[in-house]
Design a protein around this nucleic acid. Structure first.
Lengths: 245, 245
DNA sequence: CAGTATCCGATGCGATACTG
DNA sequence: CAGTATCGCATCGGATACTG
């Protein structure tokens, strides 16, 4: 047997396209708006670049995306086709399932860079003052094995939100110091921002107006609002009862 | 890197459970009501039994199904948990995508046994006479490489529909002789039953009442009714423009 | 019948080096 | 920068034989 499932069932043929290793996560990035190779790669830093390139070619062959050349060694623009767009409900369904039934925050999965990369897309710029606002994030409680930045600067200036891992030199308007696990749980809606602020797992330092407004302009994960299952049901990796109380 | 994706994103953690090889198809079977090992296996004959056993154990560990022992070498009852049931929208989403965007019927994928196994679940027994009705199916146009039965007997007797690959000895009420590809396309809703009857790709031989009623009691694939994309859009494997015209 | 244990081969994938 | 070519290993999964 080759790579297919030998079935004409639509679930099987769709799985041949959709269910390859990393493919759902690549689609998540494309659906979130990423269009270039490195941009996509930042959303899945653990995939090797050759494999990412191969998956993108496979998705093009499957009619899920188009690769428009930017010319002479400048790469491509990757854009979902109509067929690709129609994976959105499937990705959203997977996200809802993961949100309800899987334990997400554990040591293995906590990467501050990835949290920031996602967080960057979820800032309500229009609720911030109409000037450049710089927020510095610093994380503690990071796994010892983690090699990578723990400090980030978010440059919020309409209509853009940029992420830096080196000091850009601008004056900082707000400092966010956080225990990584608590920040991730708040991001996912597993605990309230209020509770992690109260416990000092997340601390905000800066002008009180900006800090007070934080809950209004920090939008959580797009799936934070998915209702959790009623207590009692078993879940993945043993323990995910609805958090928060 | 091990097997995970190193992300706390709900899409990633759900994919760790859902997107393993064969897993969506196993879930399709369970969602369709299969509960025992061999019953599940008949829906995915190309998976090896050890791998199927392993996937089922993994799904149990993930909280997706429970394995209730039937005692002393009599196997288990596999039943979806609430978490497992909640993969239904994801499977349905994949099916809808496959139905709309993928070419499903091609030489590689055409297995008459699998078609019959699925067809068996889609007979409206209550629209048949309240006695045993026996329908013999015979397929032509099967790939030369196919080793397996081309003739099947469907024993329709409320509240059961049983499939045989050897003559059960009952008198046959209706004979269905069909070109396999055409039958599969009709099953999937890609062509109308009427058109394949007209072209003699599918022939019904037997009492005219039973034959005339065929379209009423032969329910198609559960996804046959998914609306196709407007003509013109590219699709998987190059060619799937909406069939039928 | 309903699986499990073991073996071994194919392939999937990461690391590295390279190119327009 | 945006990928591609090549290599070698590791794991995935099929075949076969076995067990309660």
């Amino acid at each position: 047997m080759g790579s297919g499932f030998g079935q004409f069932c639509p679930v099987a043929v769709a799985s041949e396209v959709f269910a390859g290793r990393w493919t759902p996560i690549i689609l998540r990035e494309l659906l979130a708006g990423a269009q270039q190779f490195n941009e996509i790669h930042r959303g899945l830093p653990l995939i090797s670049r050759p494999l990412l390139a191969r998956r993108l070619r496979e998705l093009e062959a499957a009619g899920v995306l188009t690769m428009e050349s930017l010319g002479r060694g400048r790469g491509h623009l990757y854009r979902l086709t109509e067929a690709g767009e129609e994976f959105r409900p499937v990705i959203e369904g997977l996200a809802a399932w993961g949100q309800r039934w899987a334990t997400r925050v554990d040591r293995k999965n906590l990467d501050p860079g990835l949290l920031m990369w996602n967080l960057r897309r979820r800032v309500a710029l229009e609720r911030l003052p109409p000037r450049r606002v710089v927020v510095r994030f610093r994380f503690r409680g990071v796994a010892l094995s983690y090699r990578g930045p723990r400090t980030f600067w978010l440059i919020l200036e309409r209509p853009q939100a940029d992420l830096c891992v080196a000091d850009p030199g601008f004056e900082v308007d707000l400092y966010v110091d956080a225990e990584l696990g608590a920040m991730a749980k708040a991001w996912l809606g597993d605990v309230s921002l209020e509770s992690v602020l109260r416990s000092r797992e997340v601390e905000l330092l800066g002008p009180s107006a900006l800090a007070r407004a934080f809950p209004s302009w920090w939008l959580l994960s797009p799936f934070a609002g998915v209702p959790r299952p009623a207590a009692g049901a078993r879940a993945v990796r043993g323990s995910a009862r609805p958090a928060g109380s």
